[in-house]
């Protein structure tokens, strides 16, 4: 049973989750930081002091000042504005790619676990191949084949995330499918599809959500890495990774161009990780019952 903290039903699980979540100060800090980041991204059009792609050669490479709180880059663009607008790309690419990967991976994982036999061999074999490829290399390959843009970047990250979710979904499915209520469902005449979607999925949703929050942090990082090596979003659209790369040209004389977006990446990844750790503790039945 210990594998399935959902044994108490969804509503109770949510209640208990919140209770344990409350015990952990770090997870609250993560949530607050995250909400702060999200609100920055959402409010970017209103709170950013300048247009993020507006070039002002006269003020290029100026350090932090009253006019430009975080300074300007080598085109004279306001770094704070670019970071705020870049947050929209980084957060949405991170979230959407993980949701996509989660959807695909979960479906495949439940299918492999439930059907077993050659379904399992085929699906998990392919997933293992995908997992054997390092995350960044996978992103590189996809973007190299499809071309560097926002959609392809998202797809690339989703592809690296999906096998992880397939594994997370498969293992509990294998043990849940042998439980009495699945047998009872079959005796009620339910189809395999209904048993998988309606009866097994709700029992593993909690674990998936936790993994999701941890993987969004990784996805934000991957997006930054791919943008950094020039395979992300095309300039002049601001992204955090792209900004670090652009700052590299003047890294010795004006390091802040790269450092500020780096700090934002750091905070976001940290926030997601703290939140994920808190959620993981919260759905761990051993901790929850203590």
């Amino acid at each position: 049973m210990s594998l399935f903290p959902k044994a108490g039903g969804l509503r109770r699980t949510i209640r208990d989750t919140i209770r344990v979540f409350n015990r952990n100060k770090t997870s609250w800090a993560g949530l607050v930081l995250l909400l702060f980041m999200v609100s920055l991204a959402v409010l970017a059009p209103w709170i950013s002091p300048y247009d993020p792609i507006d070039q002002n050669i006269l003020e290029r490479l100026s350090p932090a000042s009253a006019e430009h709180l975080l300074g300007t880059d080598h085109f004279g663009r306001d770094i704070l504005s670019r970071i705020l607008w870049g947050a929209r790309i980084s957060l949405s690419v991170g979230t959407i790619s993980v949701l996509m990967g989660m959807a695909v991976g979960t479906v495949l994982g439940i299918l492999a676990g439930y059907k077993g036999k050659y379904w399992d061999y085929m699906i998990m074999g392919v997933m293992d191949v995908f997992m054997a490829i390092p995350t960044l290399l996978m992103g590189l390959m996809v973007v190299a084949v499809l071309g560097p843009n926002l959609v392809n970047l998202t797809i690339a990250i989703a592809l690296t995330v999906a096998p992880r979710f397939a594994r997370i979904a498969r293992a509990p499915t294998i043990s849940i499918k042998n439980r009495d209520f699945v047998e009872a469902g079959r005796a009620m005449g339910f189809s395999d599809l209904r048993i998988m979607a309606g009866h097994i999925f709700p029992n593993i949703l909690g674990e998936l959500i936790v993994m999701g929050s941890l993987w969004i942090a990784t996805a934000v990082r991957i997006e930054a890495s791919l943008s950094f090596i020039g395979l992300g979003v095309k300039p002049p659209t601001p992204t955090w990774g792209g900004m670090i790369r652009e700052g590299f040209q003047n890294i010795l004389s004006d390091p802040w161009i790269s450092i500020y977006p780096g700090i934002f990446i750091l905070i976001t990844v940290l926030a997601f990780n703290m939140l994920g750790d808190g959620l993981r503790d919260a759905i761990d039945p051993k901790l929850r019952n203590s």
Partner: peptide, 18 residues
């Protein structure tokens, strides 16, 4: 529908998440 079955273990025959 026409043929129904009930089982020995009521404790585990219901889905805990629904």
């Amino acid at each position: 529908s026409k043929l129904a079955m009930i089982f020995q273990e009521p404790m585990t025959s219901l889905n805990p998440a629904l």
